[in-house]
Structure formats: C-alpha cells, structure tokens
C-alpha cells in the first residue's frame, strides 16, 4: 500500500433526465485507483457501476446524461476540464476500456487485424506494414494462437473467448496506464473466464498498468482484485482490501451480497437472496438508501443519511477497519 493514485475520482455526480425527472445515478462517488493495482467495483445491476466507468472516459451520452459535479483526476489532470479533442487523445491510449459483450463490441465487416491496427494508426501514427506488425504483436500479447492468420479473419469466425482477447488487444495495444474492464468475463464459460482473467492479470504485471474491474461476481473479485469498492444505489458503501472485505464485510449490503451468491467452492449453503431490488434512481429512499432491504435497519437509518466513515457507510457497521 501507500502507492500513489493514478486515478482519483472525487464526489462524482452523474444525472440522467428522464420524463422530466432527474435520476441521480452516481451520487458523490469517490474512489482511487493506485499505480499497478486492480480495484474491483462491485454491486448489483443498476447500482451505477457502469455509469461511473463511462464517466471516467467521458462516454456518457449527453443529453440525457450529465456529469453534474466532482472531479476525475488522472495523473493529476482533471479529465472533466479537458476539451473533447484532448479527451480523444487519452481514450484508447492512456486509458482504455473493454466491455462485457464480445459479440457486439467488434465491427462485423472489418477484419480483427484492421480493428486492432486502428489504435496504432490513431495514437501512434503507424501506417501500412508497421501498423499491421504492431497489431499482430498485440494479438500475440493476449495469447491468440497464430496471430497473423487471425488478424485476417472477421469477428464472426472467432469464439466468444477469442473475441474478448481481440478486444483486449485493441485496449492494450497502446500500453494504457489504466484499463477499465466492465464485466469482461460475464458472457463467457467458466473455463474461458479463467483464461481471460489470467491473461488480464499477467498483462497487468507485464505492462505495469492499473485496472478498474467492474463486476457483480464476487468470485471474479476474489480471483483478481487487490482492493474492492462496493456500490449501492449510486454510492460507495464500503471499500477496503480484498481479503478484509470478503472475509470481514462490515456493511450489511456487502454481507448480503456474499450470502446471496452461489459458490462452487466450500460447503454448499442455502442461498439467502437480498429481498427487493435496487431502488429507482429517480426516487432514492430517505436516510440510508439500503434501509428498506436491510435486515438490521433501525429508526435512525430511515431518517439520516450515513456518511462514508472509516471506509464504510453505515451507522451500525460491525468491526473497525483494519
């Protein structure tokens, strides 16, 4: 620990306008990704994880979205103050992103090689044979066998796992300092998921990059993350190093997530789902946003909004941060 932060998000607020109402999808989120660490961002669907990620790259569609406040400092520069052309120099270069859908993230009418080359043409001004060579090298880097042949193929010829590798090659081609990976393995078989996570972690070591890993799968977090931030209803509710959070979760939501998730290791247990669902961001509950679903909520949880104190946002948090 004690490493410097590469990315510091502070009090980020992102709103979406819908039917004349405002949805506060990300609400005063602060998080930091340190040099060469993997930060796992977890939570149920609809908690604001992906919107947080897209905001960092300023990829929120405006309108209806709007970054309403806060700062996103990357290597000391506030990305929210950069012009669109300055931002374009950063995307896919110093910060890149891979998405969940390996099936729809590639253009079906261009060869895989061409799509990998694009990053080099744009950010490295490589042309012709030099760009092709760089693309083949990137495909090799992510463990695609016979990269020269694969570069000439169209995406539909490749399996889901291979397509996800191509997307990684595109993202990592320019050796980003930060990779944002949004559910990168969710659509894949467990065997392929394990391969992709391994490639990701190996490359993280090799290239010394940092990763913001967004997932709802606590198994993936345990496998890959150094630190974890748990998000609920647009807010960070707990953060800490991966062992503390998974072994001694302090927020009732984190504990509930852990009890709900089926696992393939350890003794089988009866699953205890979290009743109800994530609140509508147009109408967050009063007080603690988790109180309507919280098994231990008290009167004060309905009234007052708990601050993020000692890395957990709960009046009744168990244990002290370690």
């Amino acid at each position: 620990m004690g490493k410097e932060s590469l990315l510091e998000v502070e009090d980020l607020r992102v709103c979406f306008a819908s039917d004349g109402e405002t949805a506060r999808v990300v609400d005063e989120v602060s998080l930091a990704v340190r040099e060469s660490e993997v930060l796992g961002l977890v939570g149920e669907s609809g908690c604001g994880k992906s919107v947080t990620a897209l905001s960092i790259l300023r990829l929120i569609p405006e309108p209806p979205g709007r970054i309403a406040g806060g700062s996103i400092r990357f290597r000391g520069r506030d990305l929210l103050r950069l012009s669109e052309s300055e931002m374009r120099k950063i995307r896919g270069n110093a910060i890149s992103m891979v998405f969940q859908e390996p099936m729809t993230s590639l253009n079906p009418v261009l060869t895989c090689g061409f799509q990998v080359e694009e990053a080099f043409r744009r950010h490295r001004r490589l042309r012709g044979a030099a760009a092709r060579e760089a693309a083949v090298e990137a495909l090799h880097l992510v463990g695609i066998p016979d990269p020269e042949a694969r570069a000439a193929e169209y995406p539909h010829r490749l399996s889901g796992g291979m397509r996800q590798r191509v997307l990684l090659a595109i993202a990592l081609g320019c050796r980003p300092a930060l990779l944002i990976a949004d559910e990168p393995t969710t659509a894949l078989d467990v065997t392929i998921q394990a391969q992709i996570l391994r490639v990701l972690l190996d490359l993280k070591e090799q290239l010394g990059m940092s990763v913001l890993l967004i997932t709802h799968d606590l198994g993936v977090v345990a496998e890959a993350a150094d630190r974890v931030a748990v998000m609920y209803a647009g807010e960070i509710v707990e953060e800490g190093d991966v062992v503390s959070v998974l072994e001694r979760p302090r927020h009732p939501y984190t504990r509930a997530l852990l009890r709900a998730a089926p696992r393939a290791d350890g003794a089988p247990e009866t699953l205890r789902p979290i009743e109800g669902s994530v609140p509508d961001p147009r109408d967050h509950p009063s007080g603690c946003r988790f109180h309507p679903r919280c098994p231990i909520a008290e009167e004060r949880c309905k009234e007052a909004h708990p601050p993020l104190a000692g890395s957990v946002r709960c009046f009744l948090a168990e244990g002290e941060g370690s």
Partner: peptide, 8 residues
C-alpha cells in the same frame, strides 16, 4: 477448478 473461488 475454473470456477472462481471466493477465497482471495
């Protein structure tokens, strides 16, 4: 073995 373990 490929199924992710919950134990970091």
């Amino acid at each position: 073995a490929a199924s992710p373990s919950r134990d970091p």
